[in-house]
Design a protein around this nucleic acid. Structure first.
Length: 499
RNA sequence: GGUCCGUUCGUCUAGGGGUUAGGACGUAUCCCUUUCACGGAUAAAACACGGGUUCGAUUCCCGUACGGACUACCA
């Protein structure tokens, strides 16, 4: 086995990559980088019925978006091509047959219908059917059938699968990097199908063969694989191969209620569970994505990294480089983590504040037609998502249709009206116009009129923007421009005649 | 049902035989501020339960409860 760490992320292209999958990929990536190793991407498309067009491209794009770089495999090439399992199809049969040759596996001819019937019979008797050391003796396979009949069936092209001959009584144990020793008795494992009737391998075979061939040193995957890990151990033993180390990650759980995070939670909770927006090609249903919702990639990975892992310090904000530096498998939590979108929003807000005005403006593109950097500066600290800057800056370009009634009723009076009139006049004759001079002139006017600033600010804001609260008014005025400000003041004076 | 895995504030978690059980999100209050937000401060808030082991268990062991995953010719 390689003395360099080699890990792999191996999704199957059956739809949009789930955010939990992104976290799995992230942990693999962080570990690889931390250890100076390699990160591989392999596509596990051995189920031809579940193939979804576009899913593979989606995976590549999603990983790229969050900044997970692939060293080898899909999209990167490498010495073990191809990295798409469907293209490695012939390979797996050879390995399955090698197992038959050394007595570790066998051909099975039972049809799906026969097995379903079996399951039903067992179920009606209150037990679960298992294809195992006991039942295999009564089923149709190369262990029970005479050798020449098996040969005839194969020659006749009868459909068959290859199953692993799981030993009847054997303790299987392995040391998980996160959960420590896991023990399972072989009687609990059934004779899993290794090679399907269509000639494709199952996950179990393909994953073990490829991990071995690709020199994978650490298998870091979701906890849903833990129950089948002993089977994989058995497979490595059957092949006589050295095993990679295993690390089974805790699951991402629903924000409330029971169970693991699912697509349904997104619809219910109003938040995304996919990194990128995804349109299901067969139903046309669109699922929201973190990227489209306005989450920054750096916020997304920081949030994800902390769902199940913690460096043990009190630092919360981590750049990708810092995550790599701090990462270790030992610090991964054992229990599942509830998905809390509020925390994700907080991270987003923090990273948004951290970005320069220019970079956020660039993010927004032409959604902000003019004064982009200035507008970002005005609103960046007040929002969670970049696009909120666009919606919240609309008042700069659109004069208010109506004024906040409460403020007008309570604070608009002859004094204020006088100040506003004088202010409009003073501005008209003023030279330079910016936030600073606007404020200076306002002070001059209120001083001259003997009106307290505190009495004027809010009605002035309402008259200019319509709203009782908002971002810095002087800066807002600077962006609106002198002419617009004066126009809005004059409109207000005619609309709000005190007489 | 069976097998496996898990259980510290509402949530993410730190810690670990003797601690005022720490931080963050969220919540509440206060301060800052012309407003709102930002920021700052403060507060409420947790070791699932029962047995051991021990001078002493939240921490170690065993049960119980609860939760989760898996139980396909899907991954």
């Amino acid at each position: 086995m390689s003395d360099q760490v080699r890990v792999r992320f191996a999704p199957s292209p059956t739809g949009a990559l789930h955010i939990g999958g992104v976290r799995t990929a992230l942990y693999n990536y962080l570990f690889a980088r931390k250890m100076g190793g390699k990160m591989l991407l392999r596509i596990e498309d051995t189920d031809q019925n579940r193939f979804v067009p576009g899913a593979e491209a989606y995976i590549l794009e999603a990983l790229k978006w969050v900044g997970i770089e692939i060293d080898e495999g899909m999209g990167a090439g490498g010495p073990h091509e191809p990295y798409r399992q469907s293209e490695r199809k012939p390979l797996y049969r050879d390995y399955a047959e090698a197992l038959i040759a050394n007595g570790k596996a066998y051909y099975a001819f039972d049809t799906t219908d026969e097995l379903d019937a079996m399951r039903q019979t067992f179920e009606s008797q209150g037990s679960a059917f298992q294809y195992n050391a006991i039942t295999r003796t009564r089923l149709k396979n190369s262990l029970t059938l005479p050798a020449d009949e098996v040969k005839a069936k194969l020659a006749a092209g009868e459909p068959y699968v290859i199953r692993l001959k799981v030993p009847a009584k054997e303790e299987i144990r392995f040391q998980d990097l996160i959960r420590d020793w896991v023990n399972v008795h072989s009687s609990q494992i059934d004779d899993k199908v290794l090679l399907k009737a269509d000639g494709m391998p199952t996950y179990h075979l393909a994953n073990v063969v490829d991990d071995h061939l690709m020199d994978i040193t650490h298998v870091i995957r979701g906890e849903e694989w833990l129950p089948s890990a002993p089977l994989h151990v058995l497979l490595y033993q059957s092949f006589g191969w050295e095993m990679p180390r295993f690390a089974h990650l805790p699951l991402l759980l629903k924000p409330e209620g029971n169970g693991k995070l699912s697509k349904r939670d997104a619809d219910l909770g109003g938040f995304p569970v996919f990194p990128l927006e995804w349109k299901d090609p067969s139903t046309g249903v669109v699922s929201r994505g973190f990227r489209e919702e306005g989450y920054l990639p750096e916020a997304t990975i920081n949030f994800l990294a902390f769902l199940g892992w913690n460096p043990g310090t009190e630092q919360e904000m981590f750049t990708k480089e810092e995550l790599i530096e701090a990462f270790s498998l030992e610090k991964i939590h054992k229990a599942g983590a509830r998905f809390d979108i509020a925390k994700a929003k907080w991270f987003n807000q923090q990273y948004l504040k951290q970005r320069s005005d220019e970079s956020v403006a660039a993010l927004l593109g032409d959604a902000l037609p003019a004064h982009a950097a200035a507008i970002v500066h005005l609103l960046k600290d007040r929002v969670t998502f970049p696009q909120e800057i666009v919606t919240q800056s609309r008042f700069l370009f659109e004069a208010p249709e109506q004024y906040d009634e409460q403020v007008i009723a309570g604070k608009w009076n002859a004094d204020v009206e006088g100040v506003v009139r004088a202010y409009a006049e003073a501005l008209a004759t003023a030279g330079t116009f910016n936030a600073e001079t606007a404020k200076e002139i306002l002070h001059q006017v209120t001083d001259a009129k003997g009106v307290k600033m505190g009495k004027v600010m809010q009605p002035l804001r309402v008259v200019l923007t319509g709203a009782p609260a908002g971002p810095d008014l002087m800066l807002s005025m600077e962006i609106m421009g002198k002419e617009e400000v004066i126009a809005r003041l004059e409109t207000a004076l005619t609309r709000l005649q005190t007489a």
